[in-house]
Nucleic acid binder design. Structure first.
Lengths: 171, 171
DNA sequence: CATAATTACATTGTACACAATCTAATTGAC
DNA sequence: GTCAATTAGATTGTGTACAATGTAATTATG
């Protein structure tokens, strides 16, 4: 067989990398890497939240759990995990801290003793109104307009979906 | 004085939040929040890297340190930190692991005994060529074109810069 | 040149994040 | 109904992140 053979090899002759249009020597440059921009922007973002959430005693991941519960109270741990893309190893200790703060309760589901139902306390519900200033402050800190924020949100959602496909499938 | 007074009040009458154009009740919805899209995309991204870097025994933050050193060998801990937006509390243990893997050396600077110079070993340099497949694979996983990747990289870099301004200054 | 201030890094403590594993409860196959 | 397979959470171990603090070396000031 010649070197030009293109039989459907294992993970496909498929698409060439989008990087093919760039010199190979530039592939490993930090500032060319979208992933590093993503990673460092995400870390910086949590630093912006920190002082805002500290007033309530919350961390950013804890605040995310509260957001989910404010949308729909009383959800199981796995439902929270699906919504937030986090697993029980992360959520279990986090939820125990939220419980210790008296913002949520954790109760075994009587109908299915494997499940743990996470529900808001009165204090947890009260927190919703008080935390309206948080997205307000953070959105200002982004120095983005609302259309820009919406566009970025969609792009990052699409990116997450694409990356999830590559982890769950053949890769 | 009339209600129109615009004396420079504490943290300014300043700009209204970009969210002002959105119903208040939507501010706390998870899927409206760019920050959650950012956070979850970043976590998903590191999951894509994991199997690719595991071949070399590296984690994603460790890989970032290698990227910096491949661009410019022999840098101090604080230089690495400035480049990666990480502090010594994160880098010190991470660098010790890279040293244990024999990819870097850590040496006190003779000219300034406070500084620790991080430099590549031969194995660390060899890793550069071997890791060219990593950005190739990840860029495919994003399902983005090169112009899309470049645009996202710039947007996220701008976002990080804006967020950094809000943490360092008056906030 | 003595000492106060600063700088560079390390350490400690808290909180994620997640793979791997474990346990208990439920469901399925027969 | 019994036992295997599955499911839901919890636990364990490793590795970030980062605030706060500690220590040693360097620089600045008088």
């Amino acid at each position: 067989m010649s070197r030009q053979t293109r039989l459907p090899v294992k993970s496909a002759a498929a698409k060439p990398s989008p990087l093919a249009a760039m010199p190979t020597g530039d592939w490993l440059l930090l500032d060319n890497q979208m992933c590093f921009a993503l990673y460092s922007a995400s870390l910086t973002m949590t630093k912006v939240y920190k002082p805002l959430l500290q007033k309530f005693g919350l961390t950013y991941p804890q605040y995310l759990v509260m957001l989910v519960l404010w949308e729909h109270d009383a959800r199981s741990v796995s439902e929270l995990g699906e919504r937030l893309f986090l697993d029980s190893g992360t959520l279990t200790p986090l939820l125990k801290r939220l419980e210790a703060l008296d913002f949520i309760t954790r109760t075994r589901d009587a109908a299915d003793e494997r499940r743990v139902i996470v529900a808001l306390t009165a204090a947890g519900r009260r927190l919703q109104k008080q935390s309206l200033t948080v997205p307000q402050h953070v959105s200002c800190a982004t120095e983005c307009s609302l259309p820009e924020l919406k566009a970025l949100t969609r792009q990052l959602g699409d990116l997450r979906a694409a990356l999830l496909r590559s982890t769950s499938s053949t890769g």
